[in-house]
Computed example of a mutant assay.
Amino acid sequence: MARKHMIVHGRVQGVGFRATAKQIADQLNIQGWVKNKSDGTVEIDAEGESDHLSHFIDQLNQGPSPFAKVSAIDITESETEKGYKKFKIVE
């Protein structure tokens, strides 16, 4: 199991980004959370198989919803797992 913490930059708030990210995470059996930050970015903490996480990041980079435009994703790998049970949207 791998864990990655991400900050997504671009047009990612108010465009269905979090809901679509959750849908993709559910399809790929990824656990964790996604939330909007006050600076206009979106923060994600995700755990799953390494290849699933890579596919998740690839789909996020493409702009997972029609109106989202991702300009960059800052990714930090973590050695410790949180043991998330599902992927959720945090308000």
Score class of each variant (00 low, 15 high):
K86Q: 13
V12M: 01
I89Y: 10
L60G: 02
K86S: 11
V90D: 10
D51K: 13
K85I: 12
P64F: 07
I44K: 03
P64E: 08
F67W: 14
K82P: 02
F17S: 01
S71C: 09
Q62I: 13
A68F: 05
H55Y: 10
V15K: 08
T80R: 06
T76V: 06
E77H: 09
Q62D: 13
R3G: 01
N36Q: 04
P64G: 10
A2R: 01
K86V: 09
N29K: 14
V70Y: 06
I89L: 08
A21P: 04
L60A: 06
E79G: 13
T20Q: 15
Y84T: 09
I44S: 00
H55A: 14
S38P: 11
W33G: 04
K82G: 14
A68H: 05
D58F: 12
T41M: 02
E79P: 07
V8A: 03
A25I: 01
L60I: 07
K85V: 12
G63E: 08
K85W: 10
T41Q: 01
G32S: 05
S38H: 11
K4P: 03
E49V: 11
N29P: 06
A19C: 10
T76D: 01
I75V: 07
K35W: 07
Q23W: 13
R18T: 04
G14V: 02
L28Y: 11
P64R: 08
N29F: 12
V12K: 00
K4L: 09
K22W: 03
V8Y: 02
S38G: 07
V15R: 08
K88L: 12
R18Q: 04
S54C: 08
A2L: 06
K22F: 02
G83Y: 07
S65Q: 09
V42A: 00
Q13K: 00
T76F: 06
H5K: 03
A46P: 02
I7R: 01
V34T: 04
K69M: 11
A19K: 14
R11P: 03
N36G: 04
A2M: 06
K82T: 14
D45R: 02
R18H: 07
R3W: 03
E79R: 03
G14H: 05
Q23N: 14
H9M: 06
I24P: 01
V90I: 14
L53D: 02
P66A: 12
Q23R: 15
E79I: 07
G10A: 05
D26Q: 13
E91L: 12
Q13G: 00
I57L: 12
F67R: 15
S50V: 11
V42N: 05
A2Q: 01
L53N: 05
K88D: 11
Q31F: 13
V42E: 02
I73D: 03
I75P: 01
V70L: 09
H9Y: 10
M1P: 04
G40P: 00
I30P: 01
T80V: 14
V90S: 10
D45T: 08
K86T: 14
H55R: 15
E47K: 00
L28D: 03
D58E: 12
Y84H: 12
I89R: 09
P66H: 12
Q31H: 15
D26A: 09
M6E: 05
R3L: 03
